[in-house]
Write a protein that binds this DNA or RNA. Structure first.
Length: 261
DNA sequence: TTATTCGGAAATTAAAAACA
DNA sequence: GTTTTTAATTTCCGAATAAT
């Protein structure tokens, strides 16, 4: 019988975690007991039954070889080692809350693509899924890199003295890192569209114009792939979400056609 | 002797395939 | 639709090593 979820320290130490706050091990070792690591998605990704298909392939090849035929290809590639699931120390709930507040005060009037309640809800659950965490890091990066928008960042990043802009850069790097863990290319959704758009905004403000253009195109392409350019797409979403997603589509559409990088 | 580290087996989970 | 199979991640056992 194992714990539902081990704390960060027990996970790192590879020891049994009884749960709780703090857990017994952290309490005993005077460690801060956190549960910040983002769990990876379990289970097969993409084409499955790799082993059996490889074995069948090998059998076929052997058969071909004994029959005097060699195809010349070796399609068996070693699996990639899984990326680290450990979260950086950059983002926390307080920073996310401040960024959400700042977004709705300064940016929402021109980019009305989020619903505050839903966003706050997802912020609360940001440590439970990659998609939520990715959205929050992207949003924070977007807000923090905006020129002229000030978020009080004192007390963040382990006490280091970062400016809002530096923290924005660090958060942007984190958003890109975590986004790579998501399987959004194989299974695109509106989150992938939003994060691509937010990363476009970051790059634009960080003077990375080629990359900005790339992300804007990515947002537009993903939006098209999931069918946001079709009316039928919005029939499957509820009214509020549908309105936000329509706005998102048009924001991307208009930005792409009006911006000259 | 006690505490810590970490390789890797076992458990857990989820996606795809197979089946009814 | 449900069940089974497969492949991915997470937990944490227990041997090795370090610290006291």
């Amino acid at each position: 019988m194992s714990t539902k979820r081990a704390c960060d320290a027990c996970h790192r130490r590879k020891i049994r975690c009884a749960g709780g706050q703090p857990c017994w091990n952290c309490g005993h070792a005077s460690l801060s007991c956190t549960y910040n690591a983002i769990p990876q998605k379990k289970g097969p990704k993409g084409n499955r039954a790799k082993v059996i298909s490889e074995l069948r392939e090998t059998k076929l090849r052997d058969h071909a070889n004994t029959g005097g035929y060699v195809d010349g290809f070796d399609t068996v590639t070693p699996p990639l080692s899984p990326p680290s699931s450990h979260k950086s120390e950059i983002i926390d709930q307080q920073l996310v809350s401040r960024c959400i507040e700042s977004f709705f005060i300064h940016l929402y009037p021109t980019i009305p693509i989020f619903e505050k309640g839903a966003l706050v809800n997802r912020a609360k659950n940001m440590s439970t899924s990659i998609d939520n965490y990715c959205l929050m890091t992207s949003l924070c990066a977007f807000v923090l890199t905006q020129p002229g928008h000030r978020v009080n960042v004192s007390g963040f990043s382990g006490g280091s003295r970062l400016t809002s802009h530096d923290l924005g850069k660090a958060t942007f790097e984190e958003a890109i890192r975590i986004r790579k863990l998501s399987s959004f290319i194989e299974r695109p959704n509106s989150d992938a569209v939003v994060t691509a758009y937010l990363l476009f905004g970051c790059c634009f403000c960080l003077d990375k114009h080629s990359t900005a253009w790339f992300y804007l195109r990515e947002a537009a392409t993903l939006a098209e792939i999931i069918g946001m350019d079709e009316e039928s797409y919005y029939l499957s979403t509820d009214t509020t979400a549908g309105i936000r997603e329509r706005r998102l589509f048009w924001v991307i559409f208009i930005t792409e056609r009006s911006i000259h990088l």
